[in-house]
Computed example of a mutant assay.
Amino acid sequence: MSDRAARQMTIDEFAAEIGMTTRTVRSYQARGLLPAPNRQGRSPMYDDCHLTRMRTVLRLQHRGLPLEAIRALLAPDLVLRQFLPTGDVLVCALRQNPELLRAAIDSGVVTRLPDGSLELRNARAVLAAARKGASLGHTVSVLVQAVSVLQPHAESALAEVQRSAPSVPPENLAELVVEAFRLAITAVAGRGVSRTAS
């Protein structure tokens, strides 16, 4: 890894690099526009991934997009999560089914937070799995099954993209593969729908 890729900055250094105050950096972070800093001991540190994200936010803002629209574009799960039945409903549904809870955590659909609470990891995936009137338990079960089926394909897709695009920074690779996979699946589904319709 190069020195530049490994560079870590304090909030003062980060703010100076992007031409902002530390207060503004914290404000963008609180709004979900900038990921939380990495921790080195008790010190919050920023890296080049934070720089890339902040520069993207500033570029979109300069083009006239409001911050809420930018947040929805760059972190749709944060926005969508506000509209999903999480919290107590999720905990209740999953705790009633320990096997499903274990499978959901193992597959990465649900994350157990340090305080023991549960969080759905990808709101878009939950919405895609949900059927009108389906229980949260059923929705999570469908999602866990889909992740299990896709896991081997995901591993080979990640490896293949990494081989064919070595210039993509590792921190951007997963996002690139997810979006490419989404495009490919959407195209296949679209062709399937048009064939069925004719």
Results as ranks from 00 to 15, higher is better:
153 H>R: 09
123 A>I: 10
53 R>C: 02
193 V>A: 13
54 M>R: 01
105 I>D: 02
18 I>Y: 02
31 R>S: 07
19 G>K: 06
60 L>S: 06
129 A>I: 06
38 N>E: 14
156 S>W: 09
134 A>F: 00
125 A>N: 02
113 L>Y: 03
23 R>E: 14
24 T>Y: 06
115 D>M: 08
70 I>P: 01
115 D>L: 04
192 G>R: 15
67 L>S: 05
158 L>D: 03
111 T>I: 14
159 A>E: 12
14 F>P: 01
19 G>T: 11
181 F>N: 07
38 N>I: 14
58 L>E: 05
94 L>K: 05
129 A>N: 03
68 E>M: 10
165 A>Q: 13
166 P>A: 07
70 I>W: 07
50 H>Q: 08
144 V>I: 08
150 L>V: 11
30 A>Y: 02
58 L>V: 03
89 V>F: 00
101 L>W: 00
132 K>D: 12
90 L>N: 03
71 R>N: 07
131 R>D: 13
62 H>I: 02
195 R>W: 11
90 L>M: 10
82 Q>F: 03
45 M>H: 02
50 H>T: 10
75 A>P: 03
195 R>C: 09
90 L>P: 02
159 A>G: 07
61 Q>R: 15
82 Q>G: 11
187 A>D: 14
124 R>K: 11
97 N>E: 14
176 L>S: 00
129 A>F: 01
158 L>Y: 08
142 V>S: 06
20 M>E: 12
130 A>F: 01
52 T>I: 13
179 E>P: 00
3 D>H: 12
65 L>N: 00
178 V>M: 10
132 K>Y: 11
105 I>Q: 01
29 Q>G: 05
122 N>V: 11
90 L>Q: 01
81 R>A: 15
62 H>L: 10
34 L>W: 03
114 P>C: 05
160 E>Q: 13
165 A>F: 14
183 L>F: 07
15 A>E: 06
142 V>E: 12
179 E>C: 07
87 G>C: 08
152 P>L: 09
92 C>Y: 09
67 L>R: 09
143 L>E: 07
197 A>P: 03
158 L>E: 11
53 R>Q: 13
157 A>N: 05
16 A>R: 12
113 L>F: 02
68 E>L: 10
169 P>S: 05
105 I>G: 00
164 S>A: 15
177 V>H: 05
142 V>W: 03
189 A>W: 12
109 V>G: 02
83 F>R: 15
46 Y>A: 04
182 R>E: 13
160 E>C: 11
72 A>E: 10
164 S>K: 13
106 D>E: 14
94 L>Y: 01
104 A>V: 09
17 E>I: 03
40 Q>F: 07
181 F>T: 15
20 M>T: 09
106 D>W: 00
179 E>S: 12
153 H>N: 06
143 L>I: 04
98 P>H: 02
94 L>M: 05
147 V>Q: 07
19 G>I: 05
161 V>E: 05
96 Q>Y: 00
135 S>L: 08
63 R>G: 04
19 G>N: 09
27 S>A: 15
135 S>W: 04
2 S>E: 06
